[in-house]
C-alpha cells in the first residue's frame, strides 16, 4: 500500500490528524491518541482547521471533490512534523490514495511531502519510535480485527505486537481473519445488503472466538460491526487499539 519512501521521524513534536470519525463519534479514541503520544514523551499539535482526509469522495469516484479536501489538508498540515493518524484507512488515503488522485496535478509534490511524513499510529509507535513493548495491564481476551487498509503496511503487525506485550492481554484467533468486514466507506451505504452480509459473517467468526473485546485500528470497521451487532440486539464491546494502550497505562498506574 505504501508507495512512497518515508522519512524517519525527528524531534519530539508531532501533528495529530484525528480523522472525521473521531471528530464526530469517537472522541475518546482521539483523546487516547493524545494521551498515548504524550506518554511516549511527544508534544502533540492539533491543527484546528483539519477536517477529513478526502477518502469518501475518492472512493466514490469523485476525485475532483476528493482533491479539494486533500488540498485543504495539505494546507492545514504544513511543515515537517510527522503526522500521526489513529486509522490505517485515513493514513493510507494520505500516503497512497491521494497520490493516485493527484497523479496529473501540478501540486503533486506538496501531496507527496505530506505523504512522506504521515503515519498510522501503531506503525509510528513500533517502526517510527522503535517501541515494541507496552507497559501496564489490560485483562481481556481480545479479538483483533485487522482492517483491510493495513494490507501491505506494517500497521496490523505493529498493533498486534504492542497488544501481545501488554500483561493480561490474550489475543484470540478467529476464522477468515483476512476477510473484509464489509464497511468499505461509501460501499456500506450504496451496497448495504452485501455490506451487511459480509459484516454478519465477520461477527459470526468473531463471536465464535468468544472475545471480551473487539479491537481494531480503524473506528470505521468498528462502527459498522458494532452497529450491526447492536441492531441485532447483541452488542459487542469494542475499542480502538489506542484505547487499549491508554487503558493499559491507566490500569498500571502509569497515567
Amino acid at each position: 500500500m505504501m508507495t512512497i519512501e518515508r522519512k524517519p521521524p525527528l524531534g519530539k513534536k508531532v501533528q495529530l490528524m484525528a480523522t472525521c470519525l473521531c471528530d464526530a463519534f469517537y472522541d475518546d479514541a482521539a483523546v487516547a491518541t493524545v494521551q498515548v503520544l504524550e506518554h511516549l514523551g511527544l508534544t502533540v499539535e492539533f491543527p484546528q482547521a483539519q477536517t477529513c482526509c478526502g477518502q469518501p469522495a475518492f472512493n466514490a469516484g469523485d476525485w475532483a471533490a476528493s482533491r479539494r479536501v486533500a488540498r485543504h489538508m495539505v494546507r492545514t498540515f504544513k511543515g515537517e512534523l510527522p503526522v500521526i493518524v489513529p486509522s490505517s484507512s485515513c493514513a493510507a488515503m494520505v500516503f497512497h490514495g491521494s497520490l493516485l488522485a493527484f497523479e496529473h496535478e501540478p501540486d503533486l509534490p506538496a501531496v507527496e511531502q505530506l505523504a512522506r511524513r504521515t503515519w498510522e499510529l501503531a506503525d509510528f509507535i513500533v517502526h517510527g519510535l522503535g517501541v515494541t513493548t507496552w507497559p501496564g495491564r489490560f485483562d481481556a481476551a481480545i479479538a483483533f480485527h485487522r482492517s483491510c487498509h493495513t494490507r501491505g503496511s506494517n500497521s496490523a503487525e505493529a498493533a498486534a505486537t504492542l497488544m501481545r506485550s501488554i500483561p493480561g492481554v490474550n489475543l484470540v484467533e478467529f476464522g477468515e481473519a483476512e476477510q473484509c468486514c464489509g464497511f468499505g466507506g461509501t460501499f456500506s451505504v450504496s451496497f448495504p445488503h452485501i455490506s451487511e452480509a459480509m459484516g454478519r459473517l465477520k461477527l459470526q467468526h468473531l463471536r465464535a472466538a468468544q472475545p471480551q473485546v473487539l479491537v481494531g485500528v480503524d473506528t470505521s470497521c468498528l462502527m459498522h460491526l458494532s452497529g450491526l451487532a447492536e441492531k441485532e440486539g447483541q452488542p459487542v464491546k469494542h475499542l480502538h487499539v489506542v484505547q487499549v494502550l491508554r487503558d493499559a497505562l491507566k490500569n498500571g498506574g502509569l497515567l
Binding site: 500500500m1 466507506g185 460501499f187
Partner: peptide, 9 residues
C-alpha cells in the same frame, strides 16, 4: 468497479 469494498484481498 463500485462493487468492491476496496479491501484489497
Amino acid at each position: 468497479p463500485k462493487a468492491s469494498s476496496l479491501c484489497g484481498a
